[in-house]
Structures are given as structure tokens and as C-alpha cells.
Design a protein around this nucleic acid. Structure first.
Lengths: 378, 378
DNA sequence: GTTTTGGTTGAATCTACGG
DNA sequence: GCCGTAGATTCAACCAAAA
């Protein structure tokens, strides 16, 4: 067959089908304090927690741009804490509950800035979470430092953690590599801040002061969850996590104290449509590393032996052989190896390098792989 | 004159000339544990501390404390909590000494990875350090994640802190903007890791496992120190900090336990040549934006009394008076103050707000200031 | 319709000095 | 400490209106 399913993922799927829908408030926003709300969630029942807690910004007076206009700052009461001690206690409380409700193989994401992330990071380590990566969200369009007093604060930090040093976790390496143009996804992500049509507004003013971009959640969920997984966001806000989860065929639970945010989130998620089966399946294919040998495509008739394959500029035209190897003049090799040799390159992704004609169109051989995966996965 | 020198910088220069050379082991590497070594440094005597502490948290297997001493697993109950505690104690110790030896207007830099930086960050906040920025060193050529189990760990984090929330600090805004092609320098820096000729090697193997690139120190020192400042590095290693400090005309002190590193560092710094006067002066000029009073331009004939000045849209046309104040109808004030009042704005930069005609062209009054500075600077 | 220009805005720990 | 005044500060993206 060529597609390998691990015992882990099989077990996980069974567990999901039987247990989860019975107990979890999936697709709902729990009212009230997030710690109280999480207490109603069974132990070990959630696949992923994504948290965007208050940053404890501690802003001083007003700030104006050089043109005299006023900067609309985060002055909301929910971001005010009296001291590090109060903030630390708050952080320890919600992280403790998050750890409890997560499955043993679940994972936690937290986003923050330098105001809070060092406290959050130290506390989650103390609680036994194991940091897998710290991810830097490099904003392509940050707010400048108007007074020229510091470096432009152009990034935020995300921490990705497993339940402990030895704990398993989900990482969809292939999906990330595909998303990153066949290079390993790095720990720094360049993404724009949330504005334009995506930004929720009510009467011209933003509904939430710190709405996160959907692209950020898209990458987080695509990288570290599977279809059907349950994702909980204890600081749900206007529901970016829920919207993206629904789109990607993940289940979601939110906690949010403010009625205004809850209402906006529900309306937003209502409008969201899940990606259709084929798109999700394709992603799944890219995701859980079912390594397909080119030979399997030949074996199964997706690429016929004798087919001519060529690079985009048609510098080289090679022939597919029955065993899945390619032949070009006297050279032979795998799709990757031959591509590498012909180009004299240090490496080559044969899936995207080689193309073939099908129904009058030129397609990368990766297209055949995707067709194959579609057929195999159901 | 028109060029204002602040009392702060004047005081600083005097202080440097009189006190520092007498007491500080400048240009020397102190032997032994860094905390002990720092104890020999007078309180409030150092302008900058740059620290690249170890993060040898070894969980499981043989355990060593950060000072190198071995933990007896038989007598010491050792778990993750203990190992964090040992590291935290070590961190608190050296940060406490660093805080003591720093001048009230001094600053601290620490570099680390996700293994240790969250602990360091939380502790330095607890000690009263005030984080000014966290800087992401984005490696242009990181080591890939060979097993495909996580995101490529492609960055390290630096924390830049003042002595406290209200403390002053040095930030050479102009120098950074110049270095960054006239855009504000951001909190994410793209720099290659240290390799090639820069990497110290002995018989083919690297002398130090984590030698930092000189470009990193160059940016740190250029951004946050002045010529002649004293920079102390408590984990000196092979002396990158010292080498770059010498090149940039800063004074340096190192602490290093390992004789091998001390020897390599001394040899390396010996070979380093300070940049010549003109290179350093040029950088200095870009840096500290001498302040010019508008009155000085009038005094010196760059703007004549009676000149009509106006905003871009010519909503207001004011007259320059002999004392450098402006008059509009019955209102008078400085270029900044009047501009602010007329617009009803919270602030106004008169230099760019007001314009005048000269040789048939409309120019901001800032153009006159630049002419004046050109004439004065040589 | 297309391009240009001007206005607005975003998780921000955002001044220095003298009296 | 506080208060008042002089002086020095912005980048990318999106949108709407004008050309």
C-alpha cells in the first residue's frame, strides 16, 4: 500500500469516536472566568490548548504619533494587574487547569510579548510543561516606535509545549514543509497583523483591541492537530481560534468572560464554512507524513511506465521506468536523486521539480501524488 | 553656539575621565567564578553588562550544576524542579552582582535560548531590571532539525534591560536607523551564525562551542554604549565582547573560569585594532543629534526676522520675530508651541510643520537647521 | 477602469530638563 | 517628588477619493 498508519493515530481515532462527543461542550463558548470554566472540562480530554492571555502591558500615559494623532492603546480592565505576583498567580492558575484537561499526548500554545512571556514561560516549565519550540511571530507591519526610544517592537512570542519531557505530541512535519515551499518550517514566522476586512469592527471601531490574525492560528492548528481534534481556547476573545478550527475541521471550545466578545465570536464562527472534504483530505495527506514512494504511483497506475517527465524549462526530459526510477540518457535515479544530479544541486525535491502532461495540462508529479492520496485516505 | 550638550552627557564624560581608570580592571580578564570576580568591581561603575550565560540544564543522566560541580544522585534528590532551582539560584546570583556593579543609567544584555531565557527573564524582572526590548537574533543559517520532529530552531533571544522602570539608558537611535538603511531598527535581527574565518579553531576543532558572531556584539555595543564606556562580560568565553569593544573604542572587562578560553581571548583581542578616529567620529555624529534652537537660526541669519512661515496647506501664515518666536494674529509662541496650539494637537514638531520660501522653493524650516549644522559641524 | 494620493491605524511598558 | 515648557519622534497596509 505504501501508506502507513501508526498505532498511535488509530487508537486516537477510536477514542475520539467513542468518548468525546458525550462529555465535552464542543462548539460552545463557556461564560465566566476561564479557570472556573475549565474546571467543568474532564481531565485528559482536550487535544490542544491555544491561549492568548492578557499581556499585563503596564502602559503609562498617552502616546501620540509624530503627526499628533492619538494611539488607541490597550486600556481594558482585563489587562490590568497590580504586580508580578498577582499576574504570576493568575498565570499559574489557568496553566494548572490547562494541564489537567489536556490529554497526555496533548499540547499547549501560549502567545505573549516581553511584558508577560518570560513569566508565563518560567511558570509553565515549573508546572512540568516541556517547551518544544519558542516561535517568533515576526510582524510584517508592526507599529513603529514613535519616539525613537527603543527598537521597534516588531514581534510576539509563542511557546509550544508538550505535557512533559517524555510526552508524545502531534507535529505535522510534512504539512509544514509543504506550506514552507519544501523547506523545513523555521521557528520564526513572518505574518502580517490582523487588519483590513479580517478585523472585526462595530460602528467603525475595533471590537477587540488585540484580535489575532487567522493565518497565525491556521499555522498552529495545521502544524499540531489532526482533523477532529478538540481545541480549547481559554481566552477566546472574538473567536479567531474557533473560526479557524471550524474551517480546518477541528472541534473547538472557548472560554470568554465578556459578553460583547462572545456575541461577536458566535456570529463570526456561524458564518465560517469548513473547507470541503477534498481540501481537508489533501492537507491531511500533506500532514501526517504518509510517505509515498514515487514507485507506488507507478505501481498503481497514476503514472504509467514510459511517461515522459521534465523540468519546468524542459531542459531535461526523462522517462519513467516500471520500478519508479527515472532514466535520462545514461543516467538513472530516483526523482529526487536524478533531479539533483542533473542540476548539480545539493538537493532536489523531485515532486515539484518533475512535471508531466495530463489532459493537456502540465502538472508537477506531486499532483499525481495528491490524487493517489485522495483515493487511498478514505 | 546652538549646540546643546546635556548635563547628563557632560557629567558622564567627567566621571569617566576622573574615576574609572583608577579602580576598574579595564582590558583584563578576571579569573574564576563570575560572581566572585564581579564582587571585586565597585558598585555603580560599569556602563553595560553583556552576558551569554550557560544553560546546561541536564535533566536525567549525569547532572552538573552550572558552576561545573557534580551532583551526587545518591545523596541529592534530583528532579526537574531541583534542576530548575539550581539554575535559578545561579542566575539570581550573577544577575544580582551585575545589577550592583552597573551605573544607575547602565544597561544589561543577556542572550539565551528557550531552554533558559524564560527563567532568566522572569528573574531579572523580579530583581527590578526593566525590559526595554526582547531582541530576536534570527539566524540566517541555522542548524536544521534533522529528525523532523519540531520546527527548525532558527533563533536566539536577547533581553535588553535598564536598571528599573524610571531609569535612564543609552540608545543610539540615529546610529541604528542609519545602520538599517534609514528605517527604524526592529526587534528582529537577521545575522549569520559565527563560522568561517571568524570562528576560532585549534587544530581543526572549535575552541568554544557557542562562540557568538561579532556582528551581534557590534550592533549591541553600537546601539547602547558611547565611546569610552566600560562593558563587562561575565561569561567572556573567547572574548567576542572584548574584541568588538576594542574595535569600537569601548573599554572592556571579562570574567572567565577556563584558562583555555582566557588564553584564546587575550590572543584574539591583542590582534584586534581599534577603528580609526574618523570612522568612530562619523558614527558618533550620526548618533547624538545635536539640538539646535530655532532662535540660533535667526540669530545667525539662516532665517531672517520678518520671514513668513506657514504650514503645508497654508492654513496659517505666521511671522518670525527677532527672538526666534512666531506670531500669528494675536498668538505667539515657539515653533513647536504655536504649531501645537493652532492645530489643537497634543504636540507638534515645529521643524517639519512650518515652511518658508527660499530661492523660489518651499522648504520646511528643518532645511535651514540642516544648513546651519553643516556649517557648524566642522 | 486604473493609477495616484492622502488619511488612518496597529498588544507600546515611547522625553528631557529646570524649577 | 511634581509641573511646565522646549524639543523630537513613524512604517506598512489598507481604504477611499481624486486624477
Amino acid at each position: 500500500m505504501g501508506v502507513i498508519e501508526t498505532t498511535k493515530s488509530r487508537a486516537k481515532r477510536v477514542e475520539k469516536a467513542i468518548e468525546l462527543p458525550l462529555e465535552l461542550p464542543v462548539g460552545r463558548i463557556l461564560d465566566g472566568d476561564c479557570v472556573d470554566a475549565m474546571r467543568s472540562i474532564p481531565t485528559g480530554s482536550v487535544d490542544l490548548v491555544f491561549a492568548d492571555p492578557p499581556y499585563n502591558l503596564q502602559l503609562g500615559g498617552d502616546l501620540n504619533r509624530p503627526d499628533g494623532s492619538h494611539v488607541d492603546a490597550v486600556t481594558d480592565h482585563w489587562d490590568q494587574f497590580d504586580s508580578f505576583k498577582v499576574y504570576d498567580d493568575f498565570t499559574r492558575d489557568w496553566l494548572t487547569e490547562a494541564k489537567r484537561i489536556l490529554k497526555p499526548d496533548g499540547a499547549l500554545w501560549v502567545i505573549g510579548s516581553y511584558h508577560n512571556i518570560y513569566r508565563v514561560g518560567a511558570i509553565l516549565q515549573d508546572l512540568g510543561f516541556w517547551i518544544l519550540n519558542d516561535i517568533v511571530w515576526r510582524k510584517s507591519n508592526p507599529m513603529p516606535n514613535f519616539r525613537g526610544t527603543r527598537f521597534t517592537n516588531a514581534h510576539e512570542t509563542l511557546l509550544w509545549c508538550s505535557q512533559g519531557e517524555k510526552a508524545k505530541y502531534q507535529f505535522n512535519y510534512r504539512a509544514m514543509k509543504t506550506l514552507n515551499d519544501e523547506l523545513q518550517m523555521r521557528s520564526d514566522w513572518v505574518l502580517p497583523i490582523c487588519n483590513g476586512a479580517e478585523r472585526l469592527k462595530e460602528g467603525g471601531t475595533k471590537v477587540h483591541p488585540t484580535q489575532k490574525p487567522e493565518s497565525l492560528l491556521y499555522r498552529v492548528l495545521l502544524a499540531t492537530t489532526e482533523r477532529g481534534d478538540v481545541v480549547l481556547d481559554p481566552f477566546f476573545g472574538t473567536g479567531t481560534t474557533g473560526a479557524v478550527a471550524k474551517r480546518l475541521g477541528r472541534q473547538w471550545i472557548g472560554c470568554e468572560r465578556e459578553g460583547v466578545y462572545r456575541d461577536a465570536a458566535l456570529k463570526r464562527i456561524e458564518k465560517e464554512l469548513p473547507l470541503d472534504e477534498s481540501a481537508l483530505t489533501t492537507m491531511q495527506a500533506g500532514r501526517s507524513a504518509p510517505k509515498v514512494a514515487f514507485g507506488a504511483l507507478v505501481e498503481n497506475g497514476y503514472i504509467k511506465p514510459g511517461t515522459q517527465v521534465f523540468d519546468k524549462k524542459r531542459r531535461w526530459v526523462a522517462t519513467v521506468r516500471a520500478d519508479g526510477s527515472l532514466a535520462y540518457e545514461k543516467q538513472t535515479g530516483s526523482i529526487h536523486g536524478l533531479g539533483k544530479e542533473l542540476q548539480g544541486a545539493p538537493s532536489c525535491n523531485g515532486w515539484t521539480f518533475w512535471h508531466y502532461e495530463s489532459e493537456g495540462e502540465v502538472k508537477p508529479v506531486d499532483a499525481a501524488r495528491k490524487l493517489y492520496l485522495l483515493a487511498v485516505e478514505d
